[in-house]
Design a protein around this nucleic acid. Structure first.
Lengths: 341, 341
DNA sequence: TTGTAAGCGTTATCAA
DNA sequence: TTGATAACGCTTACAA
């Protein structure tokens, strides 16, 4: 049917420009100082005429430099991940790299599969957006022999650059805010702590900050995102156990905040009136839900951008010791954390 | 520092297995019937021992088949796009393709750039998720000589497969629902119609359906997402112009619904009480915003999946006439469209 | 300043 | 059944 003409090759260009491939290659690689103006023009014209674009496949094969970056995401559905992705994407564009995107859907075997896949395309580095990633998945990631940067989380006992939030600081700010507004029975909700440093750091800072004010109850509970009833149960129990107290919930991430909001709705508890609520991660709808939900915004875009810069630095040969790069969060105060009553 | 061992090549495997590359290649490509059991085992072992993975770069160069699919998205930030992406991603996985993802950020030149990029990586086909894409961007897309499938939108005067929503049916269902619930002054809000078939089809079905009930006012307005004040103004005017009427707003997509909700909040108009509201595209927070927002859910995941299936069909040589594949939407009724008062 | 030729890791052709 | 050997489109010594 529509048989498209075969792509022009470098030889075609050379022939059309009446020269050798070497010169064309030089032209392509910006070594223009080696070319006479005349030849340069001829090559330019030939390229234009044939609408020639060099094959990255051939280039990659020859030079080993594919200009490809692999991205592994646990759950592309997570808004946080999307914002980060957006930052990564922008950085790629700016630096002349292209993204090979893999969504593991949080399935353990898939991650293995993708690691091999990325390697078979000879990506020059990988970024792992661990947000929402199961521990098991993450732990198997060490096998990669490529320059790699983690986003949001660290892998226990694995030296690797990481870019993420200053959890300690953020949790501290959030907790202090609730204390300042008179809440005196705080519940920190997260997914199972496991060895996930993010969760543990946030929890620790939460507990420490809360302990500075006498008479304040501060507890935590681990819940599973996929079990809304369990979450509802947890909330109800905590609420009933502390009558007369000013109760507030801290949700450790955006996905959880959503579930908490739903649970509270089921329990007919109104945030900002019956109960305080503060969630990590900004949500586009935060201002629309009742009196609004107070959030701790992460500079997601910047985090993504910085992560990509870091892999590239490693690709370019930077070999300074492995280190973390943390960003500060920003508290966005809305009705859900106003003084109760 | 950590110098990683160079990847094993097919020659290494051949040497280790004491055979030629041809046989190894045969093994890799499943032509096992040509190999003696003994040789087969030796190759298997060698591959295992060396942890060999064939280089997709070399394969792509040689065979022209890269198993790469290009994806062009206007705005990765749009939840609709993300859901679609998720479906595409799943289909890729199932079919053994890998996604090269490009986010044009709605910038016209970028799209041009990416088209060349994808072509230089010799992607075998392209999926264009046109949701939220500027017309100008879309119109330049025809240049691609590759198998291509559009999602959500058609390009005027360009024959190309398309996968999307049954707009006519969906808009009809939505409008009828509002009429049934007693609304008699309807405003259809969309971004500038231009030649975007999606918007026009939805609007037309809206107007037609509304015209079946006598005495009903049905109008439309075009607004720009980035200008919230303009939107607020539009809403206020419409509201004031129809005192005593039961007013309802139909938002043509999810991003718009969000803006409308914000505008109504600014105007202190409560959906489900002062004014009706219904939006295309399901939103995760729809149930949390006040009495809830009625939405028309698109089967986004399926749409993405189907789109990828279609490109692959084309890649495999399917040459049936270009056609659309449309899916039905589902009305999800919530408080915002309940009978007023 | 220009061009020739070898080779990157595959697959395809052909002969053994 | 097996295995040399020549491409694929590019970069890079090395010559000229």
């Amino acid at each position: 049917m529509k048989t498209r003409p075969p792509r022009a090759t470098i030889s075609d260009v050379a022939r059309t420009a009446k020269t050798g491939k070497t010169s064309v290659s030089r032209y392509l690689n910006g070594e223009v100082h080696l070319l006479s103006p005349d030849l340069k023009t001829r090559i330019e014209q030939a390229i234009d005429e044939l609408n020639y674009r060099p094959s990255q496949m051939a280039r990659g094969l020859k030079r080993g430099r594919t200009r490809l970056i692999g991205l592994i995401i646990a759950d592309i559905t997570n808004p946080y991940s999307v914002d980060v992705l957006s930052g990564i994407e922008a950085a790629c564009r700016a630096q002349g790299f292209t993204l090979l995107m893999c969504n593991t859907n949080n399935e353990v075997d898939l991650e293995q599969h993708y690691l091999q896949l990325l390697s078979s395309y000879q990506v020059e580095g990988i970024v792992v957006n661990a947000v929402g990633m199961h521990e098991a998945v993450l732990n198997r990631l060490q096998q990669s022999m490529l320059p790699m940067v983690l986003i949001d989380r660290r892998i226990p006992d694995f030296a690797c650059d990481m870019v993420g939030l200053n959890n300690q600081e953020a949790a501290c700010i959030a907790t202090q805010h609730l204390l300042d507004n008179g809440y005196d029975a705080l519940l920190f909700l997260s997914e199972p702590l496991g060895s996930v440093n993010t969760r543990r750091e946030r929890l620790r800072a939460f507990l420490e900050t809360a302990s500075t004010t006498p008479g304040v109850i501060a507890e935590n509970a681990e819940v599973v995102l996929q079990q809304p009833e369990q979450l509802t149960q947890t909330l109800q129990t905590f609420y009933q156990r502390h009558p007369g107290k000013h109760i507030a919930i801290v949700a450790a991430n955006g996905a959880l905040t959503l579930q908490v909001a739903r649970a509270l709705q089921r329990l007919a508890l109104v945030w900002g009136k019956d109960i305080g609520l503060l969630g990590f991660d900004e949500l586009e709808w935060a201002a629309l839900a009742g009196v609004g939900i107070t959030t701790l915004r992460q500079p997601t875009w910047q985090i993504g951008y910085a992560a990509l810069e870091q892999v590239i630095a490693r690709i370019e040969g930077n070999s300074e010791p492995v280190h973390d790069r943390v960003f500060s969060g920003e508290l966005i105060v809305r009705g859900s954390s106003q003084p109760l009553r």
